[in-house]
Write a protein that binds this DNA or RNA. Structure first.
Lengths: 145, 145
DNA sequence: GGACGATTCCCCACATTTCCCCACGCGCCC
DNA sequence: GGGCGCGTGGGGAAATGTGGGGAATCGTCC
């Protein structure tokens, strides 16, 4: 039940974005139509269904908070995080802080990314693709071994 | 039910600060709407819900008080500590000593930091962020392995 | 020992924001 | 071609953050 596909949807004046119906169908019942939304890597937003996020929390819980680097990381990941649920129309509302952070204005690119969903500003994503030094085939060789 | 998110709220003339509703909902019933507030690491205030603080007390209890370093640490952490409870409006009042210590004036940044809540002076937090040598992605690579 | 003052605590009221519900139109699928 | 599902937009009600006031408590000074 992994998240697949992409779609470009509008972000309305209230910061709401629809989650594609196909991705909604990939949601485990245990997720209870609820996500944890937070800052992603490389200037995008991560959307973890509740059941997946629980695993991440367990990993964080196992860290040693008396380590300075751990505190830095925990502050960065948790300060952007919040819980969001689907409304009756299958949308979530993105916190203003995250909209500013990834510079969303008007439209958003929704990406299925296996265990989570990503939200990008379409232009930022174009820029990200162009920055990639390695092509698809080279990446596959080095990652999948 | 970890603490997530951030908010910038005002500190009124009586030293009161609201705790964001979302964080209040993450409070375990066992915490009984009560926190232990104390000096945090890196110039901020730590706010531990009562149930989490119990764990810390057990850790401290296990330390060897005949060790000079242990005594120094215990003095530092305990001398700033006190118990605070939420009022009818979901606020706590911060002891004057801690307000002076982190140089709060007028507004405070409330951070969810997994097992506790942090209170920063907004400018101090900006300075802290700028001091960070590593970016988010690098930190994640070194911490989460 | 009593009275005064300062401080703390609790309650009430307002303004803003957030959330939830309803309604419309396009497009896809049957 | 018709119906149903899906994405989009707006409005009303409840919850949230903010400020102030009054009563009880504590400590201090006379």
């Amino acid at each position: 039940m992994a998240f697949k596909g992409q779609a470009e949807y509008s972000v309305d004046s209230k910061g709401r974005v629809a989650i594609p119906a196909k991705m909604r169908k990939s949601l485990a019942p245990a997720a209870n139509e609820t996500f944890t939304i937070t800052r992603g890597f490389e200037d995008c937003i991560f959307l973890y269904p509740m059941d997946e996020w629980t695993d991440i929390e367990e990993e964080i819980d196992a860290l040693n908070m008396y380590d300075r680097e751990v505190r830095n990381f925990v502050r960065l990941i948790m300060r952007w995080a919040s819980e969001v649920s689907l409304d009756g129309q299958g949308r979530i509302s993105i916190p203003n802080s995250l909209i500013d952070f990834v510079e969303l204005d008007g439209s958003a690119l929704i990406l299925g990314a296996f265990d989570h969903i990503e939200i990008w500003d379409p232009e930022q994503f174009d820029g990200y693709l162009n920055e990639q030094p390695d092509d698809y085939e080279t990446l596959a060789e080095s990652v999948m071994r």
